[in-house]
Amino acid sequence: MLNIGCHLSLSKGYEAMGKDALAIGANTFQFFTRNPRGGSGKEIVPKDAEALTRLVEENNFAPLLAHAPYTMNLCSAKPETRKFAREMMADDLARMEMLPCHLYNFHPGSYTTQELEESIEQIIDALNQVIKPEQKTIVLLETMAGKGSEVGRTFEELRQIIDGVKLQEKMGVCLDTCHIYDAGYDIVNDLDGVIEQFDKIVGLDRLKAIHLNDSMNPMGSHKDRHQKIGEGSLGLETFRKVINHPKLRHLPFNLETPNELDGYAKEIALLRSEYREVVAQPV
């Protein structure tokens, strides 16, 4: 079964997101833990969280994905910004334990005045402060396009962060198709090669989720501008290969394309039509 969803709004509550997902043919989804530009997190009402848990279980949803706000920068040059980011992540991870979605994705961050190595050490330090051995949540580093001074533009940078985290069993990666293409990884012409490279450097066991996004820009542009599926430089054939790849097809896929719910429904239907179920061979 293709595990596919999209980014949904938390404004109406947790159970409402599950119902929206079902209405558009999704069996997973992701959401921002709070306003994507920062701010306080939405209060979790126990009954609402329990209702989402029942809906997820009854409809055999794939793992859900919570997304940290874009403003959470663990390697900011400003100490007060780094402190705020650590506190935000710690609060998010504590709240996640109440929900049936134990994947938490974040952008590693961007630096300005310091060097890359110092920035990576700041991210590692923050993760070692906030990740707890008792948490159920796996924290995912997102692959980045390399816009400006973003950390996470290469698989090597992601591996370096993971290597520095004490509780490495709590760490994983979310691969964004637009981001890695814009970063210079040619998933259009050499998807197998990119997957092999990721496995060699990071390890496919670390890959827990995929963001499905076409790109408005050519490979290596480092611009990070998402496009609707099949309407950008990646093209529909690339997504057909991604969702059917034997090393990826089991993962939860989430769309972050420029769409409203009706547009997401159309893309989900399109991708389901391109998915090929694996038929068990007789023994």
Rank of each mutant, 00 (worst) to 15 (best):
I210L: 15
H211P: 15
L212P: 03
N213Q: 02
N213P: 07
N213A: 03
D214V: 05
S215K: 03
M216R: 06
N217I: 02
G220C: 11
G220F: 05
H222R: 14
R225M: 02
R225D: 00
R225E: 00
H226R: 04
H226P: 07
Q227M: 14
Q227C: 09
Q227H: 09
I229F: 06
I229R: 07
I229C: 08
G230D: 00
G232R: 00
G232V: 02
G232A: 01
G232Q: 00
G232E: 00
L234C: 04
G235K: 00
G235N: 03
G235E: 01
G235L: 04
L236A: 07
L236N: 08
E237S: 09
E237N: 05
E237Q: 06
T238G: 04
T238Q: 01
T238I: 07
R240Y: 13
V242K: 06
V242E: 08
V242A: 05
I243L: 02
N244E: 10
H245K: 07
P246Y: 05
P246M: 05
K247S: 08
L248C: 10
L251N: 09
L251F: 10
P252G: 00
P252L: 03
F253L: 05
N254I: 15
N254K: 06
E256Y: 07
E256H: 11
T257A: 09
T257N: 11
P258Q: 08
N259K: 04
N259A: 04
N259W: 11
L261K: 14
G263M: 12
Y264F: 15
A265T: 12
K266G: 02
E267R: 13
I268A: 02
A269H: 11
A269S: 15
A269E: 15
L271H: 02
R272N: 06
R272I: 01
E274C: 15
Y275V: 07
E277S: 12
V278R: 02
Q281P: 05
